[in-house]
Design a protein around this nucleic acid. Structure first.
Ligand code: MN
Ligand code: MN
Ligand code: MN
Ligand code: MN
Lengths: 220, 220
DNA sequence: AAAATAATTTAGACAAATCTAAAAATTTAT
DNA sequence: ATAAATTTTTAGATTTGTCTAAATTATTTT
């Protein structure tokens, strides 16, 4: 199995995140995300094309090839497993795991990653609720629904929180909401989109519509 | 705190291992160890000198400065903590941990390393019995004695095994000897330097003088 | 359909880390 | 003390990844 530089891996991973089901990725988009200049992106795309990891025609944007997608899923697997390790075993906070995982993800020993996965008990989701690909690149596509759209009185499990700012984390901690929290929506107020929710058997609490929109849940 | 490239770190770490208490390191020695050419070593020494990590005069060899020593101990700390993690938590074999630790050692987040240390229970020795520096660079200098020189009927704990070949590992596993094993030497045979040892309360077994010389022990 | 604007690529330069081949310094042998 | 051998350094080139500035292509406006 070939090996890629950290730089190549960062481009590959970012293309994966930017290209949706079908869309193309543009030079400027990618330059923004990997914090480099468009000229550097063009250089790298030529290289990745020659390695058959992206389909690329000048001025037409690019997408990962099936091979590129496999490489991307491997990087994402490592990133999310390390994030899980940092949060679960080393007691890092949510908003601290990503930065360190950016480095650990580039250590690409297959044996290391598979043994880590086993040690962690084959987790299905990282601390932000994103699914972790298995050895073969398969991952749950967690049919997750925004809490703002969840019906009243239906059990739900928090499975993802988008936008991982420290301010958001603070609010979630105060409300005692975390990945895995079981709750039900008790009331919805159309006036300001606020919700009244009940966590487990505790007293109901109110959360704003803005907060609800950052929270995604599963069928509990 | 400044950051060094993987390449710089490999040179620094290797100089630490090569320079003893007082000796100087030579260009060819270092080139051999870091698997590069003498010309590259000279280039790097100029750079490390300008960063005040080594003392270096052309043609006179080099040594780490106190700052360089601190950096080296940080790298060695990371290397050995990861080796311990791999062996203890991920169940890697002795002879598999080093290769992966060569990569993990270059992830230099202080928070990561200190939390890993805590998670592992502040281990004092890596799987090969080498001491692990603490956050301040202090480590046990394990007054270890070769098993061949150990007195009869005195409790000992295996703390290091030199020469980590797979063949040696296989033999040690068969004899059920590992780091931390408690044993006593029961008899010494001058004819072929073989020893009879007793592990814990088990029946005595015989080991060759050659094997005994690879094993170092502490006062049990 | 031009002209203006925006996006992308090319050209040329640079820093890091490495190499080979040649020059210089040091050490060893005669 | 020379000469020979060894070690070390320098000079010049190469690869990877980046940048700025200029040229090219595509898109949007008029
Ligand atoms: Mn992340
Ligand atoms: Mn990364
Ligand atoms: Mn090692
Ligand atoms: Mn290394």
């Amino acid at each position: 199995m070939l090996n890629y530089s950290s730089s190549e891996e960062n481009y590959i991973k970012t293309i994966f995140h930017l290209q949706g089901e079908d869309g193309n990725v543009t030079t400027n988009e990618l330059a923004d995300r990997v914090k480099t200049k468009p000229a550097s992106v063009t250089d790298m795309m030529k290289k990745l094309k020659s390695r058959k990891l992206v389909n690329y025609q000048p001025y037409k944007g690019f997408r990962l090839t099936p091979d590129g997608r496999k490489v991307a899923l491997g990087i994402i697997r490592r990133h999310r497993l390390w994030e899980f390790f940092l949060a679960e075993k080393l007691k890092f906070k949510w908003d601290e795991v990503h930065e360190v995982a950016e480095y650990l993800e580039h250590v690409s020993s297959k044996k290391l990653v598979d043994k880590l996965d086993e040690f962690l008990g084959f987790p299905k989701f990282d601390p932000h609720g994103d699914p972790i690909p298995d050895t073969n690149g398969k991952m749950e596509n967690s049919r997750q629904v925004n809490l703002a759209d969840w019906p009243v009185n239906k059990p739900a499990i928090v499975c993802q929180v988008v936008n991982q700012s420290t301010a958001l984390l603070e609010l979630l901690q105060h409300k005692k909401i975390t990945i895995g929290t079981k709750l039900e929506v008790k009331k919805k107020f159309g006036y300001d989109d606020s919700l009244e929710i009940r966590i487990q058997k505790q007293l109901p609490v109110t959360i704003s519509g803005q907060l609800a929109q950052t929270i995604f849940v599963n069928h509990g």
